[in-house]
């Protein structure tokens, strides 16, 4: 028997239906967001195995049980790796059922973290995660006085600043992880710079890039594109399990988070966080949002105002540096992108 590996286009309804059937048969849930799908066909053009990509992750991989033990997953992963290298991604991530993790460890993937009985999160670098941990700047503060805040800061508002001030009141060092994923209209580098500028003069803050291990396309895809609540909950647990390992390595004893009345997915994430982190021995405090004239500040509202061309509205919601960015030449491209976007409110 010879096998052929080929791409299955999104518009290939017959092929996609076969992929759906195979995934159902092997008990794997299809991800809502895939940007490349391939199939392995036998001589009779029956689909025997499939696998997909999204950004720098491999997903929805399955081999029909009639063909297990023939090394078809190797074909799938070889093919998908090539696709990823063409895209410029060499550092790859995947999640898989706990029962299948051993197959992927034979294909050069290493476990980062797992949610027991649900899924295992893996990467194709043996020292990927440990290198990341080693590179993070530490603080010489006792664990119970060391805090972390994770923010997208899209863009940095006085609400973010208030959250950091509140955290700084209760801790000697606050590690601020700014999301590194380049997803929205404002580039990650600009978001980070605005956090830097907007927190000038504050003591005890240490800024980090969140990298691929905190709320990234790999750990928590539902943050960027809408997923079902069940899926997002499992991914949130995974993301927080990885965070707990980062916290352990860096001696972080608590995480501060802004109350989330607006975004559904962030609210869900916070809810999972309140359960998961205390279980891992990390304190978790929700800080009520800062309001201006009775209106809680939110980056979503800032983007909405920019989108609607009512930039004057945000004057009291953002620090001088963010204002200067959004009204000056530096942020002109980002502003144009926000104005063009159909949807600027976080789901």
């Amino acid at each position: 028997m010879s096998y052929t590996v080929t791409q299955i286009a999104e518009t290939d309804h017959r092929g996609q239906a076969a992929v759906d059937a195979l995934l159902v048969q092997e008990g794997i849930k299809r991800d809502a967001h895939l940007d490349y799908t391939c199939g392995v066909y036998d001589d009779d053009y029956e689909l025997c195995a499939t696998g997909s990509c999204f950004a720098n992750t491999l997903r929805c991989m399955a081999v029909s049980h009639e063909h297990q033990g023939e090394g078809l997953m190797n074909l799938v992963v070889s093919h998908l790796s090539e696709v990823q290298v063409e895209r410029g991604n060499t550092h790859l991530f995947l999640y898989t059922k706990t029962s299948s993790a051993k197959f992927f460890s034979d294909l050069g993937f290493y476990e980062i973290a797992r949610v027991p009985d649900k899924l295992v999160f893996m990467e194709n670098r043996r020292t990927g995660f440990s290198d990341y941990l080693r590179a993070l700047r530490r603080s010489d503060t006792p664990r119970e006085r060391t805090a972390a805040v994770v923010m997208n800061a899209n863009p940095f508002t006085l609400g973010h600043r208030y959250l950091l001030e509140q955290a700084a009141l209760r801790a000697d060092a606050v590690h601020v992880f700014v999301l590194s994923e380049n997803f929205g209209p404002i580039p990650a580098a600009d978001r980070k710079r605005l956090v830097e500028k907007g927190t000038e003069g504050m003591d005890g803050l240490i800024l980090h890039d969140s990298g691929p291990y905190i709320i990234s396309q790999a750990t928590f895809p539902g943050y960027f594109l809408k997923d079902s609540d069940d899926v997002s909950t499992v991914h949130a647990r995974l993301d927080l399990t990885v965070f707990a390992r980062i916290a352990e390595a860096m001696g972080i004893g608590m995480r501060f988070v802004g109350e989330e009345p607006f975004s559904h997915v962030t609210g869900l994430y916070n809810q999972v966080m309140l359960e998961e982190l205390p279980r891992q021995g990390i304190g978790c405090s929700v800080i009520p949002r800062r309001s201006v004239d009775g209106q809680p500040i939110s980056a979503s509202l800032v983007r909405q105002a920019v989108h609607d061309g009512q930039i004057e509205q945000i004057r009291n919601w953002v620090p001088e540096s963010t204002w200067a960015y959004l009204t000056g030449p530096e942020g002109a491209k980002a502003v144009a992108a926000i104005r063009r976007a159909d949807q600027v409110i976080h789901h």
């Binding site: 090394g71 190797n74 074909l75 992963v77 070889s78 790796s81 290298v85 060499t90 294909l107 050069g108």
Partner: peptide, 18 residues
Amino acid sequence: KSAMAGTLESSDAQVTVE
């Protein structure tokens, strides 16, 4: 630049250079 050659099939090797 990053490049890859080979496969993960039996008797082969997948080599990535960066």
